[in-house]
Design a protein around this nucleic acid. Structure first.
Lengths: 215, 215
DNA sequence: ATAAGAAATGAGTGAGTGCTCACTTTACGA
DNA sequence: TCGTAAAGTGAGCACTCACTCATTTCTTAT
């Protein structure tokens, strides 16, 4: 996992990168500090110069997720797609969103694995995640919905929390299924699959909009 | 985690029950055999009479998920809800499904945590899960869709894989969000939330069916 | 009642862990 | 060039854990 530049001692960065790689592969407890040190090409003692304990490495990874990836990658492009679309229709926005999230999740996949696992067992990590990413995404989505309603592209009485929760679920499910099964085909296959997923997010599993309807 | 009766030595059952409790709380690697033994009220050596290694306990848990819970709980009621509904409309079926899955997931929550975590790191567990539960659920869903299409309740050109994937994502997201935040209110709150989720699964985030339409 | 085998025990073992610390190397201003 | 502080090292320490096995307890057939 190659991290973007960030003011931080060379070795510390190497340690975090190595830790992300190893922990994402084997889980936190199954990873050893000696292995991380080996991959990072530092002595084991060096790890404990930068991180007080092993658990502290996890915290370091989370801080990175939030500071380096969270803000610039996760939220910025999310916001751009949802809020800078004066002339686009809802369908292309949702499609752009799904595509962008897919690419992002693939890019930070090792980190995602760690967060998904550890958030289940550490309250503090879950808290950071919620505070810095989930609740802020929710806010952005609410703004987005307001705008869409104003432009007549979304139904005004859809609950925004339920909607964003559903979209979140769809995105994650799309990613996981593609990642574990699927993706057997080529690029065209992906586009088609994407379109299907977008259709269902837009119109559900039952209804299809009347031809020429405003939605 | 109280398991249903199943032909198996008393102590072995106790060990698995204890293991589910402890592993779901702390994760597999952070759980110790001595702690499991203590909770199960057996000597540590007894564990290794029934399970060759510690990892073998995990396999025992998975076998239980599949044999005891998987077939009778996960698939049976799934099938009943989807396929024994000659007179019900699509909306009530989906609502019943979502409700049933929620109750089920809550009942086997500790086991779910273990499976969700360990499936990320062990190929064999992911394989069992896919073979015994996911692919079979998919088959059931395909039958269901065929029936719904025949009865004119679902659009025939919705891809069944995409649809079941989406429903899966919605169910899981609904569960997780309710479990970690929400559920702050009472029962009425839950019903309302359920209805919102069902609406979105049915009609998506954009369109709403015309009043009196057949869907 | 007793023998014999099965089940259960838990102290013991050694491999392997996170972490320390006495030491070496590097960076750099005077 | 040297002195000093910071950065880096890795052998070793204390400890934990999965697993073993000699011993005890239970079960049951005769």
């Amino acid at each position: 996992m190659q991290l973007p530049d960030f003011k931080m001692p060379e070795k510390q960065k190497k340690i975090i990168e190595a830790a992300i790689t190893i922990i994402s592969e084997k889980g936190f407890n199954a990873s050893t500090t000696s292995e991380i040190a080996r991959l990072a090409c530092v002595a084991e003692g060096t790890i404990f110069r930068y991180f007080k304990t092993k658990k502290d490495i996890l915290r370091g990874i989370m801080i990175h997720l939030v500071n380096v990836m969270g803000e610039p990658l996760v939220l910025e492009s999310f916001q751009k797609i949802l809020l800078n679309n004066d002339e686009k229709d809802l369908r292309s926005i949702i499609k752009a969103l799904l595509k962008d999230r897919f690419v992002l999740m693939e890019a930070i996949y090792p980190m995602l694995r760690i967060v998904a696992t550890e958030a289940m067992y550490h309250d503090d990590i879950r808290e950071i995640l919620h505070e810095k990413i989930i609740s802020r995404s929710n806010d952005i989505f609410k703004l987005f919905q307001k705008e869409m309603v104003a432009r007549g592209l979304m139904d005004k009485d859809i609950d925004p929390s339920a909607a964003s929760r559903s979209i979140f679920g769809n995105i994650v499910a799309f990613f996981i299924f593609r990642k574990t099964y699927g993706s057997a085909g080529e690029q065209g296959d992906f586009e088609q699959d994407l379109d299907r997923a977008v259709d269902i997010i837009m119109y559900g599993i039952a209804a299809r909009p009347v031809q020429g309807a405003k939605y």
